[in-house]
Amino acid sequence: MIGSILSALPLHIPDGFLTAPVALIGWLFVLLLIGWALRQTREQLGERQVPLMGILAAFIFAAQMLNFPVAGGTSGHMLGGALSAIVLGPWAAVLIMTCVVAVQALLFQDGGLLVLGWNILNMGVLTAFTGYFVYQGARKMLGNTRRAILIAGFVGGWLSVMVGAIATAVELAVSRTSPLGVALPAMAAVHSLIGIGEGLITAAALAFIAQTRPDLLRFSARPPATRSAGWVWGGLLIALVVTLFSPWASPSPDGLERVAEDQGFLAKGLDPLYQILPDYTVPLVKSEAGATILAGVVGVLLVFGIAYGVAWLRRARPSSS
């Protein structure tokens, strides 16, 4: 039973399940992020960027095929965003996962083309940043022991899948494909199980690498202060997603039935998105799609404005202090 749900609710959104405006907003996000990731990894890796990123993307692809039996004839496997971010840093992981998810869509129709932007964000960007920051945070608290690596790796892997799943639920809700009150708890419940596999594999793989080539984990051991830009961007990204879903996440989840019966929920749920700009909806755009895209674009501009502001502040601080 659990097995059939596990294999039936993947994170690869097919075309058709997100509306066109929502899908295009995803592309907008992801193009900006990829451009930034290319710059960051070029600085970090130089001429080795292309072969290293390409071959490690192939590695993630191959590693995703290493199944392990879970129960009832189903099997678990790794997504890999957290692992690659922990070892190589979040921006390298963003690139690697972008390649993996894009090729899955182009070659194997795993996930749609129009919604590819969101699939990359969910499975590549969010998993990478969540895995990376959770791992870093946990290591800070737990110290530098083998046990710390295992725990931090597990939590990072588990949470990365959870955040990806929650984001997927939010996107489905914004597209009005599934009310958040249903999609969120369902996706979260299923992926809290899937995430266990991700966490276990991530931890074991990290332990293996720490044992055989500890020098390769130097990136994750480096103090994050030297890469403040990465922190700012990553933090903002997570913040964006958290703000997107937090208005709906707070009401107590009373179980699927009650929320499903509450037919006004969806309209209520969409309200906070429009509250960013309370009164533009009526005069400017009549259709919901138009409103969504406008809200999205305004949101993107806002976030990037804030990002630049924060980056500027951080740059200015050393000279003023």
């Binding site: 071959i55 490690l56 192939a58 590695f59 191959a62 590693a63 290493l66 199944n67 392990f68 678990g76 496997h77 790794m78 692992l83 070892v87 266990i196 596999g197 276990l200 594999i201 991530t202 931890a203 074991a204 793989a205 990290l206 332990a207 293996f208 690498i209 055989t212 080539r213 390769l216």
Partner: peptide, 15 residues
């Protein structure tokens, strides 16, 4: 899962 993790780690190093 741990055995799979070791294999993933091994594959990572080779890659």
């Amino acid at each position: 899962a741990r055995v799979t993790g070791w294999m993933v780690g091994q594959l990572f190093l080779r890659s």
